[in-house]
Amino acid sequence: MEVKGQLNNVSAPAEHLLEERIKIKPANKAAIVIGLTLTVLSLLTVYAFYSFDYKEFDMTEALIATFANLKVIFLEPHLEHFSFGHALYQVLVTLGLAFLTTLFGAVVAVFFGLLAAENLSSKRVSMIIKGMVAFIRAVPTVLWVLIFAVAAGLGSTAAVIGMTFHSIGYLIKAYSESFEELDRGVIEALQASGANWWQIVFQAVIPSSITYMISWTFLRFEINFAVAVAMGAAAGAGGIGYDMFMASSFYLDMREIGAITYFILAVAIILELFAIRIKNKLKAA
């Protein structure tokens, strides 16, 4: 008798649920805000296209001209003002810039990443570093280069400092997050046996996160290569980017731009293949 009473009690709320529609995603504030934002943005986009000033602008003509240019760039590439050897050397310069800034960034970021990881540091220190990192990352790399150019003058020095600065911020975040993946219990176990902080870092934390650290670092290297190309043009940091800048705005040679683009593309593909190989190796290890 008693059991039956209890059973009724259990099934009562379920029946009550069946009567009304069951929502899997209850409407909350976040969902409403996202929905509203998307609607407003789409309306603005439509309005913008509608209100553009199309005076004396023929869409078809513009498209045809653009494709003609693209055809010249990509189907008739040649090198005129630079030799192949020179271009290769300049690509190496650009790669060197990317490598240097990634290396500097990685070394500094390991140290601050440890201090930023909540399981290895105090909550206070971790919060302060993470706050600064958020700020550094919020400003684009190019802007950091221009900021440092105020002191160092536009050129390779400003590019190295600015790119390193943003790399540090990026890698601190990546590293500290992979450090935090390590179970607190492992750290406790070593603490309980009398190990000190540095020993725990090098014997447990870094061995556990080394694969993540390597793939994040390589990803940053790829980003830095792309930025280094842009910096060659925008900040006069040298390298293949500067040649591209010269070809496009000084010699006005579209065919040369095409050739240089292919160069950069080839390097990017080689880097990507390299990254895939490293990742597979790490997965297997």
């Binding site: 046996s193 000190n196 540095w198 090098f202 447990a204």
Partner: peptide, 16 residues
């Protein structure tokens, strides 16, 4: 061997 870290110098422990 991690059980031995507590009795080692910091450097020896770091380098394993």
């Amino acid at each position: 061997l991690h059980g031995k870290l507590g009795t080692k110098s910091t450097m020896a422990g770091v380098l394993g």
